[in-house]
Write a protein that binds this DNA or RNA. Structure first.
Lengths: 158, 158
DNA sequence: GCTTAATTGTTATAGACAATAACATTTGAG
DNA sequence: CTCAAATGTTATTGTCTATAACAATTAAGC
């Protein structure tokens, strides 16, 4: 890699506002992980702003679509969400007419989760938006090969 | 270490509780990023439990040590923390006797941040703990080469 | 030099998010 | 049948982030 400038005559040019030494913190794996994650999530938020959809809500819709009829606890558990906090989340999606809770006949305690027709249509649009974003991320990484390499490395940390 | 059971005749044994289809969500880059980040941070928390140190506090100590005499706003900005929220953080470290705020003579508004001798000693211990954790993460990744590859890929997302 | 704008640290406040406990209803095990 | 567990729910707490407002001080414009 290229040689550093090593400007030691900084004091004469900008006595006050020179950059901080931060290599020690930025070299930490957890620090870089967090930065990247926040950046990607921020991007998600801006891309999905018009759809008023947050990352966790998108994953809930995708999960319900792929597993219709499952109960709240099952969906919540896969995403690592406490079922107590999942209540508000599902309620919000239900109020928007995207999800419906059908009282299970087999188990009167459980709610079977389904997408409404509106929910299906909404998810189609969301998928398109997400796929565009995902493809852009893959481009940034350099291609599909790099993506798989990244996911593999991330899994080793988990 | 034994081999998995691989019971594919699930339908006859457990009609209800089979695994959910989650490939669609787990394939999302942002999802995997978040999982890995939470896992690494959780690990940090457990490793630093005895030192009662959180990730952000560690990075603040490291930054002050590398840049003594800087003002709060500068340190906070590098870490992406609002200066309003940084006040409580520094106050906490000051109460523990690790950091001191010295009123700057040049700018009577600013506080120059320094580590106390206790802070230096504490940071030495923290560095040792962190280095052990970092080395373990590198081992999990497969080595230094893989670490650099990961950091490079993460940067492309940021 | 004087007036005005910007900076610094601070407090207060609000919102998002996660974690825990407790509860009623219902189910399943022994 | 009895008792433990599961399910959804509410309430509460704590943590973290974002915003607004403020006093003191500094810098900029004229």
């Amino acid at each position: 890699m290229g040689r550093e400038k090593r400007v030691k005559s900084v004091a004469t040019r900008k006595p006050e506002t020179d950059a901080l030494r931060a290599e020690e913190t930025t070299g930490i794996i957890g620090y870089r992980l967090r930065r990247a994650q926040l950046s990607v999530f921020q991007r998600f938020l801006s891309v999905f702003e018009e759809l008023k959809l947050r990352p966790v809500e998108y994953s809930v819709l995708v999960l319900i679509a792929a597993n219709p009829g499952r109960k709240q606890t099952e969906i919540a558990e896969v995403l690592g969400i406490k079922r107590a906090n999942f209540v508000t989340l599902v309620h919000s999606l239900e109020e928007r007419g995207l999800v419906e809770r059908i009282a299970s006949a087999a188990d009167k305690r459980a709610n079977a989760l389904h997408l409404t027709p509106d929910g299906e249509a909404f998810l189609s649009r969301a998928r398109a938006v997400h796929e565009a974003m995902e493809n852009d991320l893959i481009d940034r990484l350099g291609g599909e090969t790099e993506r798989e390499k990244l996911l593999a490395l991330l899994d080793r940390l988990t």
